[in-house]
Amino acid sequence: MRVSPAIVVEDLTKRYGDVLAVDRISFTVNEGEVFALLGPNGAGKTTTVEMLECLRTPTSGNAYLKGFSIRDPAGVREIKKLIGVLPQEFNAEDDLTVYENVELAAASKGAENVREVLEKLGLWELRGRLFSKLSGGLKRRVGIAMALVGDPEIVFLDEPTTGLDPEARRETWLYIKQLKREGVTVVLTTHYMEEAERLSDRVAIIVKGRIAAIGEVRRLIEEHGGKTRLFFEGLEERAVRSLRERGYEVEVAPDGRAVVKVRTQSEVAEVISTLRELSVEAYPEIRRAGLEDVFLRVIGSRLTERGELA
């Protein structure tokens, strides 16, 4: 099946004086996919999406949303009808209710589906509550509702879960997954590995304004993430020997923990069945390679919870 691109980015560059915030990046985002820009703070993620949202003028390069150029004033007018935006660290108006805040966004888009959006995001019962009285998770949900009102075809969510507690973060993920099910194209910026890995179809790792790696999440992990590791507590010496004889890479730590590295899911089953043949009852902790490993391999450092390079 041929997928058509919702967004095409070509050599997009943004310079602030001597600082090159975004350096000739190019990528495409297909219709209906969740595309994540993953990177540390200051990597250029927000600058990139704000250029796509027509909120920043590129220094050079161009981008097309549904075929409309972000550099063409007529194109910009059309793009603004297509997109929904949740800005970074967004907070709606404290002295307006949930309904009124979404109504404000709806009015600016000429939309009327306030109730529908509030019901979809589980906010209808809270519509009369002042924004200032909401929890952090609910506030972010109101922001998402403001981005979604008017049924945009492309939604930009800039760090949608930053500052939220784990429960509120997972709740927000559910709504983003729901968007994907509805066929909405979502561009997500995040510095949370787990978020990018769980939500996105494709991810671009961006560091210092340049794309360091891009592709489907599964493929990136396969290519750069390394092997799946099985952790065993106190594996017998004969079992270690037997696994090594069968060609598995086994490391035994000084504390007695044994780590078996495998490439595929079938090899996991093979290792466990081999141990059963030896009458060794072992239940390993399986740690699959993830985006964190990809990031570590590609960038050479880890990303902290606060979005800094460690």
Binding site: E50, E53, C54, L55, R77, K80, K81, I83, V85, L86, P87, Q88, E89, F90, N91, A92, E93, A105, A107, S108, K109, G110, M146, A147, G150, F156
Partner: peptide, 16 residues
């Protein structure tokens, strides 16, 4: 305050 909250960004990204 509207700038700080991102409200102006949100409105500016619409046809308003």
């Amino acid at each position: 305050d509207a700038y700080r909250r991102g409200l102006v960004k949100l409105l500016a990204s619409t046809p308003l």
